[in-house]
Structures are given as C-alpha cells and as structure tokens.
Design a protein around this nucleic acid. Structure first.
Lengths: 108, 108
DNA sequence: ATACTCGTATAGAAATTCTATAGGACAGTC
DNA sequence: GACTGTCCTATAGAATTTCTATACGAGTAT
C-alpha cells in the first residue's frame, strides 16, 4: 500500500528547483522543498538520497563534502550546467501536463 | 529507457474523468482522454487495459460486454458509486499538488 | 554516560507505466 | 473467396520511481 505521497516524476523537478538559487546539503534540500511548496511535500530521506545519487549520476548535480550550519559533515549539492537545462526542460514539461490536466478537469 | 510519457498517478484520474459523463469502452476512453487533454495525453493499450483491470478490481469501475459503434465486441466501463467518490478525492489531490507545484515554480 | 539531534545511506518492497507482441473479428476491395 | 486493414482487447516482461524500515556516525547538551 504505497501512500504515493509524491507524484512520480515531480521529485526531480522539485530538487532541481530547490537548488536553483544556491547549493544545499541533502536535508537542506528537503527543508527547502517543504518551504517552497508551503509544506505540501515532505520528502523523506529514503526518497531523497537515492534521487540525489541518481541525479548526480545523470550529470545534473555535482557534490562535495563540507560542514553544515550545525557543524556536521554534510554533502553539498549544486546544479551543473546540464542540471540547469534539465530544470528548464522539466519545468516546461510540467506546465504542459498541468495545462492538460486543468483542461481535462474542466471538461463537463 | 521508459519515456515516462504520463506522470505516474495521473492515469487513474484521467480515466475516472473520462467516464464521468457516460460509459465507454477501452479505446473510447483512450480517445476521450486525448480529446479532453487536447491531444496531450495519448494512452496506449498496454497502459490502458492493465489500469482498467486494476480499477475494476478496486471497485471503481464496472464493466460488461457489448457492441461498439463499429459493430465490434467491446467491453464497456462505467463508474461505480465508489468510482465517483474516487474521482472527487483524486481531483482534490491533484489540485493540492498543482497548487504546491505552482508555488514551487514561482519561487525565485 | 546518556540521550538527542543532525545527516547520510541502503536494502527491499510496492506500484505504475511502457514496449512489444498477439490474436480475433468485422469491413471493404479485388 | 482471398486479402488487407481497422477495431478492440489482452498479456508478458522490463524499467523506473518512490516508500518503509533500518542503520550508523558524529556533534551537542545534560
């Protein structure tokens, strides 16, 4: 019974968008996503970290170890140039989908 | 390389919405989805039929054999009462998600 | 010491969707 | 009648993403 909390496919876009302004470490990304979605999406570690690894593998993120605000060892992620392009692409895709769904749900 | 054409989770809602007005057979549902989304979503048989079976299993649809407009044997699906409730539930869920995403994508 | 928070990580399960393929039946044409 | 195309349903198998649950190390505070 997967409480499909998040729509499959939206997580990547949210992560990319969370990193658009500045680099963040994992939990920081999670917090920023909660912030920009007004608390609607609460990404849990088990979803977040595999996604980050996958996206780094894809070349959209790069990362390095550093120290967090609380003096903990943390891995900081930032967008690569390809990641920035991907953000644009996925944003457009989302807009297409949102438009289509809005049209469908308006249909009488 | 799954060209995830459709966002995972939207298919059910689209099917429910396609059947909101009147019962349809499988390919008819597919055509109606294309229609109400202005051609954005083209649901292929390999996605559609498993979904229909699943949703009937879940009690949201009921079906019966009949003849299509073209005099072919076709299975007609219609919403059950539970299906109608599910349509409302998923519509609200979608709206929540769409709002959250809009908020996220607006963030500077 | 102890307990708590922060931060990352992974294994395993679950679910949905896609590609590819199949086949029966009707309709139209030569 | 044979052939071809369209309509309609169906399934197997693969691929992918996300969730639950669990773990562990290290800093902080009591």
């Amino acid at each position: 019974m997967p409480n499909t909390n998040l729509l499959q496919g939206t997580l990547d876009l949210l992560i990319l968008k969370a990193l658009a302004l500045t680099g963040l470490h994992g939990l920081g990304i999670s917090r920023r996503i909660a912030q920009i979605t007004n608390g609607t999406f609460q990404v849990k570690p088990g979803s977040l970290f595999p996604a980050l690894h996958r996206m780094e593998e894809a070349g959209w993120l790069s990362s390095s170890w550093g120290d967090s605000e609380n003096n903990r060892r943390a891995r900081f992620y930032r967008l690569t140039a390809a990641g920035r392009r991907q953000l644009q692409t996925e944003t457009r895709q989302w807009e297409t989908i949102a438009l289509a769904m809005a049209s469908a749900l308006e249909a009488s």
